[in-house]
Design a protein around this nucleic acid. Structure first.
Lengths: 337, 337
DNA sequence: CTGAAAGCGCTTACAG
DNA sequence: CTGAAAGCGCTTACAG
């Protein structure tokens, strides 16, 4: 079963009785063409179902009007939201977006492979949102294609980043807990290597609590998406602790489940906070106390920064930190006495 | 600030002291090349950070080894999971995946535009998971590129589809409710136009309940993601009703919130079921009674069907319905008396 | 085993 | 306003 080839510009030219140069100009709406020709060419193109070959076009024009996006794992809602926001903004500005992603984590090799496949497509610019890709990995390519990191601060030479202001975020939600009156608080901390952003917000929480004379119990988490059972046990072992701060809503959900099976009432016996504040876990049904990341704005700004860079030839601003908001819920209350 | 161009095969050839044909063969590992040449070329390519231009390659070889995916909206977790599953499977089989998506719904025009942009890239095959693209929209292109619809059954001529067996799914969860002893059940129904799959499962629920001599109250929902307040009011108005079946976990979450603010205990006064059973809403904390869609398998199978088609030149199987599983939870119980 | 040549489908100066 | 020509960066027969 042989498949008919797609019609080319030559087919359109023949049918319309003009040269392929004329077809190109007519379809692009650039250069001088008579209105007559434009109309005739458009009609033929339409009738044949002509779709320009983006490869041929990109090869000669050296511009693809396409942005490449590398995402850590789209089963994590953060990345799905980011992707959607970027796609929308890019469309508004006349760019396509192609994304590559992993599952249960891209491995470092997968991520590098993904990056290369996007570079192979000669996208006009790259947005990277994956901890698997270090600043070092990116620097190798940044003299070739503009690269914006979305979702974490990146300090590598020449790379631009757009991210939630985690310093501010961690501080704000910690303040919220301190103001409720908690004086002994457990903070679940993810390592910098696992997730730079989750580590940053956790560190900010700890610093802020201490600055408010709150006694902090730091509990390190091996993985940003692993089990939290032993961390909860550790927290509960200290009866003075009246609040437990999590680095993400997902971690919070797991913590709450551990508390539920132990029949520990939240917030009566212990207050719990999350971080993210969007998507399914932000539904009013759950009433989680959290910190809402400005994810829509992160995606939009990353695209804006990238397009500015692409079009102006130089990065506009190295790092943009966007603030979020505390979302009070029903999982926090003043401490029991 | 002018940007250095990416090195081309010519640059590699010059440095390695061979022709560009030799470089091409060495890098592709095809045709006859001496081991010496291969080694030298590889070393130079590596040193220069050479990344082949996928456009030039695709233009001449007429194959891109790339699959295009159109997704309705990646803020909906179904699509994020699907995307991840497809990406993984494609990678296993040596294909790249490029995705385009919408936000808060692709409009019909956006979706058609997305489809065209993927066709412009001359992807080897297309997977479509968006209700915005009708069978009719797809049929126009299917003689040009293989197209698989993922997530809904599609009957248009020449199109292949892979989807959850909604007939079976709706029937199974309805049986579960009927066996608990419910005799008056409300079913929230989404229109076929809004979501073919949600409509199919709802219709199956209704049919099965009736076949079990359960009295069914059908409540139509305007949108698959809109508010459910008035639907809940309608259901509660009939005091005989002891169970309420939702077409998705997302709808269920909204229903439960309406019940919570009205202080109606679930499942004591009314049992509630969802549908989807994956991602955040499947966390044990919530204990939702639901039906788990085989989403990983849908994604994987869609990719397999597509690649078979691409490589063999003809579709293998028109429609594949994959069964899921009932997930009992804490939102259902035998009816109150 | 190697290189020269043709050509994939476009766009873009350049003449007319 | 229009067309012929060159060329983007590759792969692929085809000679040698």
């Amino acid at each position: 079963m042989s498949r008919p080839k797609s019609p080319t510009i030559i087919d359109v030219a023949r049918e319309a009785g003009v040269s392929k140069s004329a077809v190109s100009r007519a379809l692009l709406g650039q250069g001088d063409v008579s209105p007559d020709t434009v109309e005739r060419v458009r009609a033929v193109a339409d009738r044949l179902g002509y779709v320009p070959n983006a490869m041929a076009r990109g090869l000669v024009s050296q511009r693809t009007k396409t942005l490449g996006v590398v995402l850590r794992d789209t089963t994590i809602q953060f990345y799905g939201y980011l992707q959607a926001a970027m796609q929308r903004r890019a469309a508004e500005r006349g760019y396509e977006v192609v994304s590559v992603t992993g599952v249960d984590e891209l491995t470092v090799e997968d991520a590098q492979e993904a990056l290369r496949s996007l570079i192979a497509l000669r996208v006009d610019g790259l947005i990277v949102s994956s901890a698997q890709l270090s600043g070092e990995d990116l620097v190798r390519y940044v003299d070739r294609v503009p690269i914006v990191v979305a979702g974490r601060a990146e300090y590598a030479e020449g790379i631009v980043s757009v991210h939630c202001d985690e310093e501010d975020g961690g501080a704000r939600i910690a303040e919220y807990v301190a103001r409720l009156g908690h004086r002994d608080v457990a903070v679940l901390l993810v390592s910098d290597r696992e997730s730079a952003s989750q580590n940053a917000r956790g560190t900010a929480m700890i610093r802020t609590l201490r600055a408010s004379n709150v006694k902090v119990r730091v509990i390190e988490l091996d993985s940003y998406r692993g089990p939290v059972g032993s961390a909860v046990v550790t927290a509960l072992a200290d009866p003075a602790i009246t609040a437990l701060m999590c680095p993400s809503d997902v971690a919070m959900v797991k913590v709450l489940e551990e508390l539920r099976v132990r029949e520990i009432p939240v917030p009566e016996q212990i207050s719990v906070t999350g971080y993210d504040g969007f998507g399914y876990l932000a539904e009013p049904l759950f009433g989680f106390t959290s910190f809402r990341q400005p994810i829509e704005e992160i995606g939009r700004t990353a695209v804006d920064r990238l397009i500015e860079w692409v079009e102006q030839g130089a990065p506009v601003e190295a790092r943009t930190a966007i603030p979020g908001t505390v979302v009070p819920g029903r999982t926090t209350a003043p401490p029991r006495r």
